[in-house]
Design a protein around this nucleic acid. Sequence first.
DNA 1: TGCCTTCCTTCACCCGCGAAATAAAGCCCC
DNA 2: GGGGCTTTATTTCGCGGGTGAAGGAAGGCA
Lengths: 418, 418
Amino acid sequence: MTDDLVPRLRHAPPRTGDSRLIKDLNSHLVLDKIQREGPISRTQIAAETGLSLSAVSKLVAGWQRAGIVHEIGKEESRGGRRPVLLEFDYHSGLAVGIKLSVNRMVSVIVDLEGHVQATDKRAFRPGNLEETVEQIVEALEALLEPLNAADRGRVLGVGIGLAGWVDPNRGTLVRSEFLPLSGAPLRDRLIERVGMPVHLDNDANTFTVAQRWLGEGQSVENFICVTIGNGIGAGIIIDGKLYHGASGGAGEFGHIPIRPHDGPICGCGRRGCLEALASESSILRDARAALAAGTPSSLREAVASPADLTIEHLIEAADAGDELARGLYQEAGRMLGQGVAILVNLFNPEEIILGGEGSRGLKYYLEGIERTLADQVVYGLQDEVRLVCVSLGEETWAVGAATLVPKDVYSSPLHRGR
Amino acid sequence: MTDDLVPRLRHAPPRTGDSRLIKDLNSHLVLDKIQREGPISRTQIAAETGLSLSAVSKLVAGWQRAGIVHEIGKEESRGGRRPVLLEFDYHSGLAVGIKLSVNRMVSVIVDLEGHVQATDKRAFRPGNLEETVEQIVEALEALLEPLNAADRGRVLGVGIGLAGWVDPNRGTLVRSEFLPLSGAPLRDRLIERVGMPVHLDNDANTFTVAQRWLGEGQSVENFICVTIGNGIGAGIIIDGKLYHGASGGAGEFGHIPIRPHDGPICGCGRRGCLEALASESSILRDARAALAAGTPSSLREAVASPADLTIEHLIEAADAGDELARGLYQEAGRMLGQGVAILVNLFNPEEIILGGEGSRGLKYYLEGIERTLADQVVYGLQDEVRLVCVSLGEETWAVGAATLVPKDVYSSPLHRGR
DNA sequence: TGCCTTCCTTCACCCGCGAAATAAAGCCCC
DNA sequence: GGGGCTTTATTTCGCGGGTGAAGGAAGGCA
């Protein structure tokens, strides 16, 4: 009986169409319109969705009762009664986002528009399930403690992002390079402890959801987010919905083989992964090696020893025109460009969003990427894709994780996972 | 006004939920069950779909009236009234499939189960729109002519597959290496001429649809078909639905860059595409070069000059243990393996179907693929994917194209493309 | 002030689903 | 072989949701 539960969930019966589905569908269709295109009038929603005016009115009333949609004012008259404008109320709820990484945990409280209300940064010591849960709960409490009771009641849930292979349906880690909790019921333990919805996903995916909800992908149905920092990751939106693959492992862009025979060893233990060729840590590794090998560069004066070199040094040097730094970025950009070319050939996306850590290095990558794309994409498909750059900071990750909450609450049933 | 039409189509209003959608949805849910899992009883359908028995009965009645579903007999009693078994009637309609290639056109009439009723093979001379349409119509007439009037009335439509970038929504070729009809309304002209539905798609996509409808992907929601022959292609099924990308160009697997700097020139003009490294024609090219360079091999006795060498020679030689042939296949397999590893890292599919032209060479590829996968896929994701081999012949392509027809007629409204 | 336009709400009606009652078909056991 | 019991299928009815028409509300314009 109980044993049956999990397989049953994986092959759950398909959603059948009954009146509830209809209402769900239409009501989210309306909410979506208001969120993406608001302020907007009922009549306009009806015209654009194809729903009847009466249906729109009723559905809007539902969202108003729930406090998620408000009337914000009236538009100019177009010869008759002035349209009443409706707006998504981004202040109607709060969400907590947590980004976990090797030895750090950054948490935020945001409103539904992603505006940060409070931040908590602290050390994180990867441990067993209980130790990990305990640290997350502590951070959560520190974050919620200053809130008054009313605000605390408005918190809708918690989203957590981390690097690794996550099964978001089960709420477990399948494999992660820094957190040895494979298979442990991390999400469910947390739900028990904090008494509100908790969502878990890969960090690149959380960033992607944020871009879809509030960022550069709001009106794009097929796009890919590539994140570039110490590692490289990707999140894939297909038909407006995050694509997880068969078991949550989709989007491991950083580990696609690019130079599997003669490339450098990657953190994952294999050779020539894109991440080992194009990430900022790979650039740093090559810069240190070049300095140690005696390559001339202004970097030599910036640090006492190659080991002290940081990304900031490299960016400064590149800004100042240093050949070595620029060359390394360009080479990394070409490698990344090859990866992006593969994405474009395979996915033919409408848009690719490049999220760069701090984003300052991104412009040095960009040239290499664009040139490579033109060379390596078939049929001129690269002209069909828009490249967009977005800056990523420590907090951005946490804010992204927080958007798992509204994504779950307010997304259409067709986009809600299986 | 008219100018507006195309953009309006691209951003068509989303499908709203009304009672018709419900019926459509449930009715296809039921049909799908019967097609995939039939023979099956009404009660079992109800249990597995979650629909009420009354709904199932009514919906089944609809399909019976349409002649698509029939009662086939009764099952053993399980202690009470014997269940009536329902079966999808694959003979209720016919479909035409056409595969166009450089100088050849293969057409078939099949029933809905893909059984070939008639075949037509002829030369194809790529020309302008009217010339092309004319040749297709001729083949179609040759195929339909022997049919009696009743059978002719049962033909539901025509599906066409060809290599290149196709926009299936508009029914146009965007770019193809052998047919200079970019942007021409090929599908719509054909619809006018033949007076029945015509569908156009990339050939790898048609093969993929066939695998989903009748082949190895019937019960798999996320899989990728890779086709290997003179070229290399792929079709992607996500959530049970063929993925086309933003403008129909998705799945250009043969042209992902693998050795963009030092690889051989590809037919598309760029360097180091997968297709230039791992297709059968690339193996042939390398074999000829090796013979010309004096590499010892049993192949030398098989042909007078390297130019006479064919794939069949290579397969025979490999079967006989020839080092050169085996080595070339293995190397190509490793290259293909790198490509497949990229697919697995990015898509985390449940299954990958390898369609090999004639399939006889596939076993020589396979070893290289499997070994490479184990090396180049992160987190052991390769253990999550099933590799399946399928044989591909000239007719298989045409049969695949034909499945565009039932896919369109009988697929759920949620899977019917945007 | 009166009429028109535009925006929104209300009400009657249609349609499909689910639940329950009913019918049909077959097993089992005395 | 006849009365239960079980399983399968159909029919009936009420509910919820969407649509469309009619009506109310708000504002422009002469």
